[in-house]
Amino acid sequence: MIPELLGRCTFPPAGTLVDCAVSGGPDSLTLLVLSREAGCRVTAWHVDHGIRPDSAAEAEVVASTAKRWGAAFETRTANCKPGPNLEARARMTRYGVLPEGVLTGHTADDQAETVLLNLMRGAGPAGLAGIDPTRRPLLAIRRHETRALCDSLGLEAVQDPSNLDPTHSRNRIRHELLPLLCDIAKRDVVPIIARSAGLMGNLRDLLDQLATTIDPTDARAVAEAPETLAQVALRRWIQSETGSRYPPDAATIDRVLAVARNQSRSTDVGGGWRISRSAQRLGLSR
């Protein structure tokens, strides 16, 4: 089973030093096992959010698996209090203590869920491209395959009860929407959605490349460019200059285009930033 799975993974060459985020669930344990089987020199990183009382036992699962496969082990604490947006806050807290460039165990099922989530939010090509494959070597592996691998190796994977909580939109997509889509289509739609994500990723990359020919501070160039490319150029510029975690939404970009087209003098772009036009130049200011 391991050779077949490895053939669909995108690990770096054998001997490469890699860090793996390992929660103890089947996906991340599979990441740990396959990264070692690929010949990488691995450090498994476990993050305790302080949310569940049995988190110490979960760390031990990761530590023992790392020892069994000859990987180093590191654990960090990043307390995250229960409350609204817990999933997003836990993710931000987790990445705050993990090393830069850490590999994660996202699968094709995670990809399909992400695309559907972004579709419901009205995303464009970048959002519909789903999860960036960079540092996600298992993105062509299915979730049922990670469970099967853990079972075959006798690994007692951690079962996160929050994955069953219907208050999280992703869980309703996982347990309700995707099964319904499969039933309607009379086939497994996960690989279909994942393939569409790849196509949208190619389109996103092409648009990014073409948008580099546009100076986003040149109001005339922005106003005269094809609207789609102008939107991409502005979105990248604003996110880069403001240091925002997320790019501006479509409504914000529409307002900035109105400034470039001399339909308004300035507009707020969020985060305490504003774009104004002066002498045919667009400028960002606090």
Rank of each mutant, 00 (worst) to 15 (best):
A230Q: 00
V102T: 15
S169V: 13
I2K: 02
R135Y: 04
R174N: 06
Q263T: 03
V190K: 04
G154Q: 09
P248D: 10
R52A: 13
G272M: 10
R265M: 09
D54P: 10
A21D: 02
W69F: 15
T93Q: 13
Y95D: 11
H168F: 14
N262G: 01
S278Q: 14
P216S: 04
P161N: 05
L138T: 08
Q239R: 13
L164C: 06
A140L: 09
P99C: 14
P137V: 02
V42T: 13
G24R: 00
A219N: 02
D54T: 13
R135G: 00
L181C: 07
G70A: 10
P84Y: 07
N262C: 11
A72T: 12
E241L: 05
A14S: 04
A59M: 13
G198Y: 06
S264K: 10
A140I: 02
T104W: 03
W45S: 10
L257E: 00
P248I: 01
L138E: 02
L164A: 15
D110G: 01
V115S: 04
G127R: 00
S169D: 05
V190F: 07
P12K: 00
Q239P: 07
N202F: 00
E224Q: 13
A194I: 05
R187F: 02
G243W: 07
G272W: 12
D268M: 08
A38L: 02
R41K: 11
G130H: 04
E227W: 03
R121N: 06
I51H: 05
G270Q: 03
R204N: 09
G272Y: 12
G96W: 05
D218M: 08
L257M: 09
E113V: 12
N202Y: 03
A56V: 14
T77D: 15
P216E: 10
A66G: 01
R143L: 11
S169W: 07
A221S: 10
S23Y: 00
A108K: 06
R41V: 09
L29N: 02
M200L: 15
T114C: 10
V18G: 04
E87A: 15
T213H: 14
I238A: 05
